[in-house]
Design a binder for these strands. Sequence first.
DNA 1: TTAAATTTGTACTGAACGGTAAATAAATAT
DNA 2: ATATTTATTTACCGTTCAGTACAAATTTAA
Lengths: 206, 206
Amino acid sequence: MNTVKPNKTRGRPRAFDHEEALGKALNVFWTRGYEGASMAELTDALGINRPSLYAAFGNKEELFRKALAKYLAGPVSYAEATMHEPTARKAVEKFLRKSAELLTNPNNPRGCMIVQGALSCGQGSELIQRELITYRKNYEDRLKQRFELAQKQGDLPGDSNAADLAKYIATIHQGMSVQATSGASYEELIAVVNTVLDNLPENQNR
Amino acid sequence: MNTVKPNKTRGRPRAFDHEEALGKALNVFWTRGYEGASMAELTDALGINRPSLYAAFGNKEELFRKALAKYLAGPVSYAEATMHEPTARKAVEKFLRKSAELLTNPNNPRGCMIVQGALSCGQGSELIQRELITYRKNYEDRLKQRFELAQKQGDLPGDSNAADLAKYIATIHQGMSVQATSGASYEELIAVVNTVLDNLPENQNR
DNA sequence: TTAAATTTGTACTGAACGGTAAATAAATAT
DNA sequence: ATATTTATTTACCGTTCAGTACAAATTTAA
């Protein structure tokens, strides 16, 4: 089945590339947060006018969700990959190092959209705020799962606490996101990561 | 000189308590952030009408700065105190434990206003955003100073890096703020703090 | 008792907010 | 050719935003 180019559709053809526009919207939301991004700035950045944007992506909330999905599937897709490293230590190391890289990459906005997209916000944005909290809980849970696996496989002490360790690493990541937004360099974040790694339990099988 | 009660001032007397109103404004900004707090919600919370608020506190930006000053002088005043603990280890311990307490205290909003007051924001809030970044840099610098003192006094290894360690602790604090806003309990934050403390250099003089 | 000073309440301002109606343009299907 | 479908453009909607003009109210000073 060729589902790639269902050309010869009826009607006036769209004058902009859907994914490219979504990428530009992602950039605005990543920089400004949900609330801080105005529809005016968004339409400006996308180079299309307002009704086209609404027709293509729904409303502001839906646009944000679609941009967030693109964020997860794109820049952040490294995260799940790092969980498949052979040991918990290596998983954490890769996760934090790659995070430091993304958070300070000059080719994209600083900080993490899941952390900062709607941390504090007005009454109208509380739904998005809750959704982002859920995303944060999700990746912390993923870390916890990874640590539980490590305990079974013996590369983490059986008496270590997977949930506590996961929250510790998630806390580090979230703090690094704040640091990146505050202007911390890649090297500075790596120094933080090294401090964390120096002190992980079961240090011997480095 | 009695500057406390310069009573018998001309004009209609103010119908509300200045500090009490400022405390209510602090609560709103602490919860919503600078941008998320609307003047309507603020006047509602303070129970005074708009012109009274503007006459007493200036505009939204100035009100935020005054609320922030009250925050620093009040709920956050513990921070400087912890720096005077006899060792770096004890200073960090007190700083993080007291932070966990404040960040999850049911009597005030969750999270830290310096971290979340304007992390991501729209174009109109960038001045406040930069000011908060400066406040974050300031307390990180204060940690660095404390660690340098500890190196001189011998309770931190001379070859440890005070700047890196300060950034690590600031990162932890900022991550804990995000965690608190995401719903983490006091006990969960304390578990994070314990993980950090277990791994501080120069562990012997506990 | 009147004047001066200050705060209060009401009602408003222009700008920005998210969102949309309606006409026009550009494509395919018949 | 004409109808149908979809996208674009312009111009607008009502609401909320931060901020204020103005007059009434309440105090002290003269």
